[in-house]
């Protein structure tokens, strides 16, 4: 491993850690009632971005670690969100070449579909391990995800450029 790639690896680590930290804070910020159910799933957006940009390095394992942190914050049963995010990262890794060439509008649609798969999987698993029922409001956050994706994408691109990650 040349020193150049190792330095890039370190800066990737810090960029992923910083963006996940901000996403965790945004996830639990207190909100007015009208925004509550439409608030995006920030962690999912961050994971999609990094899994898309550096598929060889941010994969299921990193997504699982971030998901476990979110489970600690939410005080939920362990394992479900970790598995959900790992699946999300795995799908994005596998299809990153197709997703990268899409225009921003097409990307928005695909982000909505990917997070819908993630929410379906985790909602279903929570139904098994604890008392949980999927309500109509459960799906409202998809609207927020799709609408916020272009802005999140631009901000994370900026972060990546500053950190000189290729």
């Amino acid at each position: 491993m040349s020193p150049n790639t190792s330095r890039s690896s370190t800066s990737l680590f810090f960029a992923v850690a910083l963006s996940s930290f901000i996403a965790l804070v945004l996830t639990i910020v207190q909100l007015p009632a009208w925004l509550f159910h439409f608030w995006p799933d920030w962690i999912a957006l961050v994971i999609i971005y990094w899994a898309l940009i550096s598929p060889g390095r941010v994969g299921p394992f990193v997504a699982f670690v971030i998901g476990t942190l979110l489970e600690v914050l939410f005080v939920r049963k362990f394992g479900v969100l970790g598995l959900g995010f790992a699946t999300l990262a795995f799908i994005v890794n596998a299809t990153h070449q197709q997703l990268r060439v899409l225009s921003i509008w097409q990307q928005m649609i695909f982000v909505g579909m990917l997070i819908a798969i993630f929410k379906l999987l985790t909602g279903w698993l929570y139904g098994i391990v604890s008392d949980f029922t999927i309500t109509r409001e459960y799906w409202f956050s998809l609207v927020g995800d799709v609408l916020i994706w272009p802005f999140a994408f631009i901000l994370l691109e900026e972060l990546r450029r500053k950190a000189r990650i290729r």
């Binding site: 639990i28 910020v29 207190q30 909100l31 509550f36 159910h37 608030w39 939410f74 005080v75 939920r76 909602g123 929570y126 949980f132 409001e137 459960y138 956050s141």
Partner: peptide, 8 residues
């Protein structure tokens, strides 16, 4: 003062 969890 934190929004714990909207699904539960």
């Amino acid at each position: 003062d934190v929004n714990l969890d909207r699904d539960n």
